[in-house]
């Protein structure tokens, strides 16, 4: 019981992550968190006492997210375009506009790059932790992180026009 109650502490973090992944879609985000919690509770026995519970929960979350992306990828996935996206990063007076740009730019990233950026930035995870969660080499985490940051910066600074990404 005590182990299970520890999950509680991480629910706000899981919600923040899901909310960012689903570009502010509350329903989709909380569905993902709910699936994650339920799966975690069912499989609590497979979590090894003393290991990192946060990493375990985020691994479950990642797997659920990837499955969902696969299911959705049958149809084209269009990224919303709006005019705000094209203004510069520096010297912007209106902070809210800048944040909208940022959210828009975040959502042009491929899902794996988005996950890496969010785990490193919001959760403050090490590259090793992210690599374990996503089951990819640490070097891949680093190169994708770098690409993600570059792309967001280029879009926000207006250097590139965000292209409409289609999932094949």
């Amino acid at each position: 019981m005590r182990n299970e109650s520890k999950i509680i502490e991480f629910i706000p973090r899981l919600r923040r992550y899901a909310y960012a992944l689903y570009r502010g879609n509350e329903t989709a985000a909380d569905d993902l968190v709910q699936d994650c919690i339920e799966r975690a509770l069912r499989n609590m026995a497979s979590w090894q006492q003393g290991t990192d519970l946060r990493a375990w929960l985020f691994t479950i979350m990642h797997n659920l997210y990837v499955n969902q992306i696969k299911r959705m990828s049958n149809g084209p996935n269009f990224v919303d375009l709006n005019d705000d996206l094209f203004a510069g990063l520096q010297g912007r007076a209106d902070n809210h506009m800048l944040l909208r740009d940022l959210e828009g730019a975040l959502n042009t990233l491929p899902p794996d790059q988005k996950e890496i950026l969010l785990l490193v930035t919001l959760e403050g995870m090490s590259y090793r932790e992210v690599a374990d969660i996503m089951d990819i080499p640490e070097g891949t985490v680093m190169s994708r992180l770098s690409r993600a940051r570059q792309q967001i910066r280029k879009i926000i600074s207006g250097e590139v026009v965000p292209h409409i990404r289609r999932v094949k």
Partner: peptide, 10 residues
């Protein structure tokens, strides 16, 4: 900026 966008969920 990402923190500003999403930390309210916490």
């Amino acid at each position: 900026g990402l923190h500003t966008l999403y930390d309210h969920k916490l």
